[in-house]
């Protein structure tokens, strides 16, 4: 057994600082195991969120050595242990305690996005006829575990604090899942352009790079949505077509 030092940000409501904890580490451990070990043996009041310990619930987001990651999916053998491993809370959300932040803003944002609005069912039993190829893309988006790591890293939120005007990559993915659902008839493009601020995104792809579900947020969700917004509002021909054939730009 060897030991490693974890430099964990401790404190409440944004006041605090790093504190070093040294524990024994063994083969296969992930960062969350180390945090739990510290909690059980050295600091029972060390706060962190977790549930599944298998990358499925999106609870254990933190910044490990400066990069936004899931603690339960970060193996210790992937990071250098000869120097202290820093673990910090996500910086884009208001701090609560230690590694726990107040992510309630995300829940509020989601509520403002127009919900799934199905077309009339195709089958007598109330279901839709949809081919696998037609839903592959939507399923990619629906893999999202709401870890909010993409929100954490996006400079529009992190550096510019545009939480009022910009919904962030997670919710572009959510919008895209709805917009590209073959049975959906809702219209979210107007809101995307105005209140939801898709124009602020300048396609840096930082969000895509941190997504633990490997959702291609920028290429597959944001860029197509941007195109739809452009088609809807700035393309006179598309606008005319739509007037003549309602639903023509919907996919």
């Amino acid at each position: 057994m060897s030991t490693a030092t974890f430099r964990i940000w401790r404190g409440e409501n944004g006041n605090g600082g790093f504190k070093d904890h040294t524990v024994e580490v063994s083969e296969g451990m992930v960062v969350l195991d180390a945090v739990h070990k510290i909690q059980a043996t050295q600091a029972t009041d060390l706060a962190c969120r977790w549930n599944c310990k298998a990358g499925k619930c999106g609870s254990c987001s933190a910044e490990i050595n400066g990069s936004p990651r899931l603690m339960c999916m970060t193996r210790l053998n992937q990071i250098p242990l000869d120097q202290p491993v820093t673990i910090e809370p996500m910086r884009t959300f208001p701090h609560r305690k230690d590694l726990v932040t107040d992510v309630s803003w995300n829940f509020d944002v989601k509520k403002k996005i127009a919900r799934f609005k199905p077309r009339k069912a195709d089958a007598a039993d109330g279901t839709f006829k949809m081919g696998q190829a037609d839903i592959d893309r939507v399923q990619e988006f629906r893999k999202c575990i709401e870890c909010y790591l993409c929100q954490d890293v996006c400079h529009v939120l992190r550096d510019h604090g545009k939480h009022e005007e910009f919904i962030g990559p997670r919710f572009f993915v959510y919008n895209a899942a709805l917009e590209m659902h073959p049975a959906d008839t809702g219209d979210r493009l107007g809101a995307l352009k105005t209140d939801h601020g898709i124009g602020y995104c300048n396609i840096t792809k930082c969000c895509t790079n941190v997504c633990p579900e490997e959702i291609r947020i920028t290429d597959n969700a944001i860029i197509p949505l941007k195109e739809r917004v452009v088609d809807e509002f700035y393309d006179p021909l598309g606008w005319l077509l739509k007037k003549l054939r309602p639903g023509a730009t919907k996919g």
Partner: peptide, 20 residues
Amino acid sequence: VRELETWGAVFDRTKDGGIL
């Protein structure tokens, strides 16, 4: 299960477009 589909769930599909 069918009700979940009408609320937006996207299950894997059969060849003829139903729930697999």
